[in-house]
Design a protein around this nucleic acid. Structure first.
Lengths: 159, 159
DNA sequence: AACAGGTGCATAGGACGCTATGCAACGGGC
DNA sequence: GCCCGTTGCATAGCGTCCTATGCACCTGTT
């Protein structure tokens, strides 16, 4: 009864698969990173910081493309766990500059290896062209969403 | 110094774009669903429940592909918000059967519309073939990750 | 120098995802 | 009927993400 061709099937939606594969990929990465005391999100911050020298929370926020409080809490946890340290910025006393600790630096190679291995696992069986196509399509989706969200969140429509 | 061609650039990783576009898509959907008192995750549960009749937490967990405590808390919040109600299962007193409330049922059409519109926004400019290709690639990624994760989380390797 | 607006960050509060763990109800073997 | 392993949920604890809000510091104007 009630035409089953119209039932709501999540598997038909790209949004569902983006969301689902994202959680899967994060879980896989964390299986490898947990023994190092890291997760996928803070591993990315760590590498950014290790290779970009001391930088502010604002810079890290922009590079990771997350909101400011997200990065603030992440850095707070990472400082608690001895992965990063903050030093006062003499040029602007509102914020600090963050650096990687020696402890974290000693694990960088393993972190990079874990991320690369996770990426390799996720893309196993995909040709280079398919991988590029996947990234290209996701970039377009992200851009589309930005376009669509802008007028919804700031109802100011400039004349 | 230290060859800048090898610096760690997140944008080169499919994992990064999957994660990033996932957060973007969720945020867009929630912009539209918040006025309805819903979010992307519980909207999906609501539609599943509305069209699949009364069902157990276990069924919903399987259909949404999340872990059991995730669904338990989601249903608890949805019950608190008057979206679903639980009735004792006479066949098995360990669990309950969940149904959609009249309040939630009255919003189903708007919910479906919001999800469809979000999907349309996200895929704007993509051809039908590109959309299918995107979904196909993400399904393969999800399958790959399952394959790769299995031996990592259960170190029992059957002879 | 003083004030006003802007900027960088911290905090509160909540949703959603996970792992780990425990309990109560079921069900099969004796 | 009783025991024991299995199953369905609940709970605790945490990480990551968000919005909303407030404060301290900077900076340009006067």
């Amino acid at each position: 009864m009630e035409g089953e061709g119209e039932r709501w099937v999540p598997e038909r939606y790209a949004a569902y698969w983006i969301n689902h594969s994202s959680r899967k990929v994060i879980r896989l990465h964390e299986l490898r990173l947990r023994p190092l005391g890291l997760s996928m999100a803070n591993a990315a911050v760590l590498l950014t910081l290790a290779e970009g020298g001391p930088m502010s929370q604002k810079d890290l926020t922009r590079l990771a493309r997350v909101e400011q409080p997200t990065m603030a809490e992440m850095l707070s946890r990472m400082e608690r766990d001895g992965l990063v340290c903050r030093q006062r910025n003499p040029r602007d006393r509102r914020g600090s500059l963050f650096s990687v600790t020696d402890l974290a630096r000693s694990r960088l190679d393993l972190v990079r290896e874990a991320l690369v291995q996770g990426e390799r696992d996720a893309l196993s069986g995909l040709t280079a062209e398919e991988t590029e196509q996947l990234i290209r399509l996701l970039r377009r989706v992200a851009g589309n969403v930005d376009q669509a969200a802008a007028p919804l969140q700031s109802p100011e429509r400039k004349g």
